[in-house]
Write a protein that binds this DNA or RNA. Sequence first.
DNA 1: CTGAAAGCGCTTACAG
DNA 2: CTGAAAGCGCTTACAG
Lengths: 350, 350
Amino acid sequence: MVKLSDVAALAGVSPAAVSRVLSGDTTLRVSEGTRQRVMAAAQELEYVPNHAARSLRTSRTSTIALVVPDVTSAVFAELARGAEDEAGARGLAIVLGRAERLQDDREWLRRLVGEGRIDGVILQLPDGTPPADLEALVVQETPIVVINSVDDGPLSTIVLDDAAGIGLAVDHLRQLGHTDIGLVGGLLGSATGVRRETAFRSAMTDAGLRTPEGWMTRLGYAGTDGRAAAIQLLESVSLPTALVVANLNAALGVLAEIHARDLRVPGDISIVAMHDVWYADATWPPITTVRMPLSELGAAAIGALMPGASGVTHTVINSPPPQLVLRRSTAPPTSRHSVHSAVDSKEPPP
Amino acid sequence: MVKLSDVAALAGVSPAAVSRVLSGDTTLRVSEGTRQRVMAAAQELEYVPNHAARSLRTSRTSTIALVVPDVTSAVFAELARGAEDEAGARGLAIVLGRAERLQDDREWLRRLVGEGRIDGVILQLPDGTPPADLEALVVQETPIVVINSVDDGPLSTIVLDDAAGIGLAVDHLRQLGHTDIGLVGGLLGSATGVRRETAFRSAMTDAGLRTPEGWMTRLGYAGTDGRAAAIQLLESVSLPTALVVANLNAALGVLAEIHARDLRVPGDISIVAMHDVWYADATWPPITTVRMPLSELGAAAIGALMPGASGVTHTVINSPPPQLVLRRSTAPPTSRHSVHSAVDSKEPPP
DNA sequence: CTGAAAGCGCTTACAG
DNA sequence: CTGAAAGCGCTTACAG
C-alpha cells in the first residue's frame, strides 16, 4: 500500500504538507505550486489514506451501526437504502446488526462501541421493548438515535408521521363512501402501533364516525398476525366494509384469510395498508397503500449522528408527506351494507 | 477509554505482558500468577482493546463487506442472518453494501479496500453481470467470494444446489400425478436461472416427460416478472397443470395473475416455488416451496474469507439438503386435463 | 508558507 | 519467564 510518505517523497515535500493538502487544509497555508505537485503525486500513486491510522489518530471511525429487529420487515429495505445513500455521500460505512443481539448478547453493542469501531448507532427497537432497556443503552457515550419506534425518552428519536399516514388512509376510505371502517393494528406495546391506533381513532372522530372495539385488533405487523386479526374480525356479528391495516406485511395475511373465506376484495371489503413495498403490487388484488418517507427516515438518522447534531432531539419525518398509492384493493362499499352499523358493540355482562 | 497501559499499571506488569496474556498467548510464556493478576485487572477496568490501534498494527480489520443487489430479495434476509451469526461467532463486523454501487460508483469498493477497512468481500452479483466485470474485481488483493451467482471463473464462488432443489419440486409434482409441467425461470443471463432451467429440463427428461418451449419463460425473479410470465403462459393454446417457479418473489406475481383470470390454485394449476420466505405462508393459497440452505450459504461465505481458506474454490452448499415445504398451492391435477399434452410446440415458419 | 516531532494504542521481534 | 523499544500510518500543535 502506498502511504503518505511515498506521496511526500514524490512531491518533494513533507508528509505533513501532503496531509494538509489532501484534507482540504485547515487554513490553506500552502502555496498553489506545492498543492498542485501534491495532488499530482497522490493521483499518480493512487494514494488512499489508511483508515486504521487515521482513525487511531482522530478517534473517528466514519462508521455507523444500523441495528434493526427484522431484515425481512416491510420497512427495512427502503430505510437501509436511504441510510446507505446518505452514508455513502458522507464517506461513512454502515455496519449491520440485528436487534435480537441486544438481548442475546448484551455485550455485543457495548463491545462494538468499546473497541471504538463506530461513531454512532441507528437503532430500531423491537416492538414492546421496555423503557428500562433504553436506559441501559444511554450509558455509552456514543450517540444513538432510535428510529421508527418510541418518539420520546432519554435518547434521540426519529419517527414517521404516523398520524398523517393513517389520516390519509381513513380519508381515502371516507371519500369512497365507507363509514364502517376497522383497524388491523400493531402489537399491543408497539410504539408505532399505539400512534397509529390513536391516529385512527381521532381521524374517525373527526369524520363523525365511530368504530366498535370489536373492529380493532392489536395482534402485530407480521403476515401471520394479519391472518389472525382477519380471523377475529371476520367472526364479528357485523363486518366493517373496509379495513385500515397498520402494516403491509399484515395486509398479506388479511388478504389470505379473506380469500380463504371466499370473500372478495374490494367487493366485500376494502383494504388500505401502511407502507408501500414491491409485493403490494404482486398480490391479488394489488393493495392500495400509504407510502411513507422511509428512505428519508434513514437519511435523517445518519444526519442526526453527525458531529453537528446537538443533544437529544425528537424528530418527525414528514417530507415528502405520506402518499396514497391507489391500487385495486379499495372501492366504494357495495349496497349489501346498507345500514350504518358503526355502533359501539357493548356486550351485556354474561 | 481504558487502555493497555492502564491494565498493565494495575496488574504491575508491562503492557507487552498484558497484550500477550489477553491475546491467548503465542507460546504461553507467562506464569500463572501473572496471568491471574492481568485478567483480574482487565476485568476490573472493563478493558476493551482499541480496534484502530490493533488494526493498524496487525493490518487486519475483522470486517467483511456483504454486497448484494437487492435487500428486498427473497434470499437476502436469511443469507444475511447466516453470515451475521457466523461473523458474530468470529468477532467480525459486517459492512453492508448494495451491488448497484459497483456500477454507479466504481471507486466505492476499491476505496473501501484501499482504505484497509475490510478483510474480504462477499458479493452477490446482479443477474447477467458480464464476466468482464468479474475480472475487474480480481485485481484487488482482498479476498472476494461470489455467492449465489456464477459457479466458476477467476473468483471463489459458492452456490446452492439448484439442481437438487428443482429436482425436488419436479418430483413432488410428478408424485401428485402431474405430467404437464411448466417453468417460470430467471432472467436470461441469470446464472442461477440457467442452472435451474438446466436442472428442470434434466429432471423432466429423467421422468420421461417433455415440456414444450412455450411453457418455459425466462423473465426474471421479481414479482412483476412472475406476473408477466403468467400472462405469457396463460395465453398458450394448452396449459400446463403445474408450474415450477424459480423464485418465490415471482410466484407471488404468478398467483396474482391466476387470480386475476379467475382460475384456481391448485384447482386449475399447481405451483411450487424456490425459496421459503415468510410471505409464502401469507398468500392465498399459501405456497408450497423448496427451502434452500441460505443461512448456511451465508455462513460458508464468511468461512471462505478466513485466513485458512486457500486459493480460488468453487463450492456447492448442499447441507442441509433442499427441503419441500408442503402448503396448499399444489394438488393432483384435475380431470380437466385428461390428455398428455406435453409435445414440442414447433411452430411453422411465418 | 512549510517541516520536525510527538503521539494515537496496540503487537511483536529482540534482548536479557 | 518478562520488559524495553520500535513501529504500524496517520494528524496536528508547535516552531521557524
